[in-house]
């Protein structure tokens, strides 16, 4: 049996925070550079390009697999001659039309879906029916209905964007916390102002995901569609550029076309969507 020793109480005076100045340690230069996501991704890109170059030189078969450097050469050549920018612009224009229309219809459909029960059923039914249907499978029909032209392309783009965006937006709306809904209704908000002021910002992480997926789907569909029916009224897009060059066995130019698709995709993802994210969901602490 050990006697428990009563220890004395301790009292200390807290030091005033003004007395110890600023407590922080500066990051090293290496840490600061590496903290930048763009730098990390840039390094990865360079590594991938080097890998490509090395493998292509090892293979030494420029017809099947041209080196990164010859692809770059073809890329700059096509840019200088003005064909690639023109083709890219044609594609991007159609893409934006289709994407915009798809997002608009998705918004209409989801707003109907959250305000009425029949609307919910309709959305669920339509998305489960049409979401698995590849947009490209609708192209023959579209060509029949809208002819050889942008109309058909926009039609299949809407199909590829609409369901992905609508599905994500709707599930985002459903996951808004009951407390936040009650707060909105407490303010006396109803109908559209309730959707715009409470539901859309609260569901913004899901909506943004939907927009990103929709964007990727739209790109894929567009390039595939252009490969299938190629040129319309004398000015084809990137898909046509790729197809044309393949027929002429200009393989580095084929890669340059693919490279352009990748570049535009990277730019949209890392510049447009990233800055929307930084300004909204990250700033609001809804996403880390």
């Amino acid at each position: 049996m050990s006697e428990h020793v009563m220890r004395p109480e301790i009292h200390r005076q807290a030091v005033d925070s003004a007395a110890f100045g600023i407590v922080q340690k500066p990051l090293s230069a290496r840490e600061r550079v590496f903290n930048h996501g763009g730098v990390r991704k840039g390094l990865l890109l360079i590594a991938l390009a080097l890998l490509w170059e090395g493998y292509a030189r090892l293979l030494d078969n420029p017809l099947l697999f041209p080196a990164f450097s010859s692809m770059l050469e073809a890329f700059f050549e096509a840019i200088m001659s003005g064909t690639l920018p023109a083709r890219a612009w044609v594609s991007v224009k159609v893409l934006l039309m289709g994407y915009g229309a798809g997002v608009f219809f998705a918004a209409v459909l989801t707003i109907i879906a959250i305000t009425t029960r029949v609307g919910t059923d309709l959305l669920e039914l339509l998305t489960s029916m049409f979401n698995p249907l590849p947009a490209i499978a609708l192209l023959p029909l579209a060509l029949l209905w809208f002819g050889l032209g942008n109309g058909s392309l926009v039609f299949v783009l809407i199909h590829s964007v609409l369901w992905a965006v609508a599905l994500n937006t709707h599930s985002g709306f459903l996951s808004v916390s009951p407390t936040m809904r009650m707060v909105g209704r407490n303010y006396g908000l109803t109908g559209l102002s309730y959707v715009a002021q409470i539901l859309i910002p609260a569901a913004f992480p899901s909506i943004l995901t939907g927009l990103k997926i929709g964007w990727a789907f739209a790109w894929r569909t567009l390039i595939a569609a252009e490969l299938v029916f190629g040129v319309s009224s004398g000015s084809g897009g990137l898909g046509w550029f790729i197809y044309e060059n393949k027929n002429q066995l200009e393989i580095p130019a084929v890669f340059a076309g693919l490279f352009t698709v990748i570049l535009i995709g990277l730019a949209v993802e890392n510049v447009v969507f990233r800055s929307i994210e930084a300004r909204t969901v990250r700033r609001w602490g809804m996403q880390s």
Partner: peptide, 20 residues
């Protein structure tokens, strides 16, 4: 018969503030 701003609610949950 409906919610309104003449009866403001303060909830238990911390997520009652609009994060945006």
């Amino acid at each position: 018969n409906r919610p309104g701003p003449d009866r403001m609610m303060v909830f238990q949950e911390f997520d009652q503030l609009l994060p945006w």
